[in-house]
C-alpha cells in the first residue's frame, strides 16, 4: 500500500518531467511524422511502380504491413527518447535530486516505465493508425486493405505497441549505460545493425538466430505475412517484450547498488 502511494506520486512527477521539456514533445512529433510520412512515401512509390511489378509480386503484395514500414525508421526516434528519459537525468545531475526525493529507486524506474510506456503507446498507436489509413488511401487504386480485414486491426495495434516497446527498450538501455551516446549506440546496433550482421552467418544459423532479435521478433506484431522464416505473432510478442523488460530488469538490479 505504502509503495503504491509512492509509485503514484512518482508517476505524477515523471509525467511533469516528461512534458516540461520541449525536446520530448519534439521527439514524439518526429516519431509520428516519420511513421506517417514514410508510409505515404512507400505507398505512393509502390502505386507508381505497380504496373511494372509483375503478376507474382502483385499477388503476394500485402498492403497492411507495407503501410506500417515507416516504423523501421521511427523506432529510432522513440527509442532515443526512451534513452534520454534516463540518461538526461544522469547527464544533468538531476538523478541525485530524483533519488534524494525518492530513495526507493525501483519505484522511480517503475514510474518512468509506466509514464513513458503510456505516452509512447498513445503516440505509437496514433502514428500506426494514421499510417495505415493514409497508406490504404494511397494504395486504394491498386491493392489495399480495410481495418476489418483479417489481422488488420491486430497489425495496426501491434505497430503502436512495437513503438512503445522500443521506447521502453531505450529506457532500459539508458538505465544500464547511463550515457546517452553509449545507450543510443547499443540501441541502433540491436534494432538495425545486428539483424544485418546475423544475415551474413551461414544458413540455417542466420534464420534461426535472426528471428529472435528484437526487430524481427517485434515485426510479427505488425506484419501479416513474412518473406523470411519468422516466429508466430504470439511467440514473437513474447520474445520482443523480453528485450525491453529484460533491459529494465538488468537496469533495476544495477540501480539498487550503484552510486547515483
Amino acid at each position: 500500500m505504502e509503495s503504491i502511494i509512492v509509485l503514484w506520486a512518482n508517476v505524477r512527477a515523471e509525467w511533469v518531467k516528461l512534458r516540461s521539456v520541449r525536446s520530448t514533445l519534439w521527439a514524439l512529433a518526429i516519431t509520428m511524422a516519420i511513421t506517417v510520412g514514410l508510409s505515404a512515401l512507400f505507398c505512393s512509390t509502390r502505386v507508381a511502380r505497380w504496373d511494372r511489378m509483375g503478376r507474382g509480386a502483385q499477388l503476394i503484395f500485402e498492403p497492411i504491413g507495407f503501410s506500417l514500414n515507416g516504423i523501421f525508421l521511427s523506432q529510432l526516434a522513440i527509442g532515443v527518447l526512451g534513452v534520454l528519459v534516463m540518461t538526461s537525468e544522469y547527464g544533468t545531475g538531476q538523478i541525485r535530486a530524483t533519488f534524494a526525493a525518492t530513495p526507493t529507486r525501483g519505484t522511480v524506474l517503475l514510474a518512468k516505465m509506466k509514464v513513458f510506456f503510456l505516452a509512447s503507446l498513445v503516440v505509437g498507436e496514433i502514428s500506426s493508425f494514421a499510417a495505415f489509413f493514409l497508406g490504404q488511401a494511397i494504395l486504394s487504386s491498386k491493392s489495399s486493405a480495410s481495418l476489418t480485414d483479417p489481422g488488420a486491426l491486430r497489425a495496426v495495434l501491434g505497430g503502436g505497441l512495437y513503438l512503445a516497446g522500443i521506447g521502453i527498450f531505450g529506457l532500459g538501455l539508458g538505465v544500464i549505460l547511463r550515457r546517452t551516446a553509449g545507450a543510443i549506440a547499443v540501441l541502433v546496433a540491436s534494432v538495425m545493425i545486428l539483424p544485418q550482421l546475423v544475415e551474413l552467418l551461414p544458413s540455417p544459423w542466420n534464420d534461426d538466430i535472426s528471428k529472435y532479435l528484437p526487430s524481427p521478433a517485434g515485426q510479427t506484431l505488425f506484419h501479416i505475412t513474412s518473406t523470411r522464416p519468422s516466429l508466430s505473432t504470439g511467440v514473437g510478442l513474447f520474445v520482443f517484450l523480453a528485450y525491453p523488460l529484460g533491459a529494465c530488469l538488468i537496469g533495476w538490479v544495477l540501480l539498487r547498488t550503484r552510486d547515483a
Binding site: 544533468t92 538531476q94 535530486a97
Partner: peptide, 16 residues
C-alpha cells in the same frame, strides 16, 4: 547542480 537545464524553475520544483 542537480537540475535539468531545459526545465523552468517552476517545472523543476513542480515534479519534486
Amino acid at each position: 547542480k542537480s537540475v535539468h537545464p531545459a526545465r523552468t524553475a517552476r517545472g523543476h520544483l513542480q515534479w519534486l
